[in-house]
């Protein structure tokens, strides 16, 4: 392996900038979609163990709405957009104009699921196209999948590829929130970008850093 351990603070800054640009574009898309002000937190780049990764967003057992896609092309990796149930409910209620919609009511209505799927498509698309413009790398995302389940069960799929070479993961973690409920100090939605270990060199090279 080795590659991951050689990452310097300059590298971390680059990864933070990627999280920053990606999430800023996604926040703008979401804001236009919902006609609401959406803001973002300062991106975090973390090198953590798998178990620490599972402790995000309230822990492995917390039920969340998760959008997942694989990135292919010049860079490979996994990307997640994770929403707590309450927040996903608010977004979808607003999108489909149905205040009764709830991800906890089974079976979950088809229209709500497809709205969530579409929201995932749009947000991950704007995140990744910003990333592609910034790095000038070709990035081909797969069609995002949707799951309403335990956070640990969802995020672990992104650790599989990494686990062949490492017991640690570098996660580019950006969170967004609705401006008018900012005072509650709740993080409302998380983007996790987990590049495959081999892809870090490509990312750094694309920005002129070896």
């Amino acid at each position: 392996m080795g590659q991951i351990e050689k990452i310097t603070s300059l590298h971390l800054d680059i990864l933070k900038e990627i999280g920053n640009i990606g999430a800023a574009h996604a926040a703008t898309s979401l804001s236009e979609l919902l006609r609401k002000k959406i803001d973002m937190h300062v991106p975090k780049v973390e090198m953590v163990s798998f178990n620490d990764m599972m402790e995000h967003v309230g822990g492995a057992e917390t039920v969340v709405v998760g959008i997942y896609l694989r990135i292919e092309g010049d860079v490979q990796g996994s990307m997640f957009f994770i929403l707590p149930i309450a927040q996903a409910n608010r977004f979808i209620q607003r999108l489909i104009n149905d205040p009764q919609f709830n991800f906890n009511n089974h079976p979950i209505s088809e229209i709500g699921l497809s709205a969530m799927q579409e929201l995932g498509n749009i947000l991950s698309g704007s995140y990744l196209s910003a990333l592609s413009d910034f790095t000038r790398l070709n990035i081909y995302p797969t069609v995002p999948g949707l799951s309403v389940d335990m956070f640990g069960a969802i995020i672990s799929i992104g650790l599989i590829e990494i686990s062949e070479v490492s017991d640690q993961v570098i996660a580019i973690n950006t969170s967004i929130f609705e401006e008018d409920i900012k005072h509650r100090n709740e993080v409302q939605g998380h983007f996790f970008l987990l590049p495959d270990p081999e892809s870090f060199a490509t990312i750094f090279k694309s920005l002129g850093v070896s």
């Binding site: 694989r70 797969t142 069609v143 999948g145 799951s147 389940d149 969802i154 799929i157 599989i160």
Partner: peptide, 16 residues
């Protein structure tokens, strides 16, 4: 051993 996401991709990771 669940398959959390349904993809058409034949990639082995999806069938893990």
């Amino acid at each position: 051993g669940a398959q959390m996401f349904k993809f058409t991709s034949a990639k082995d990771t999806m069938r893990i």
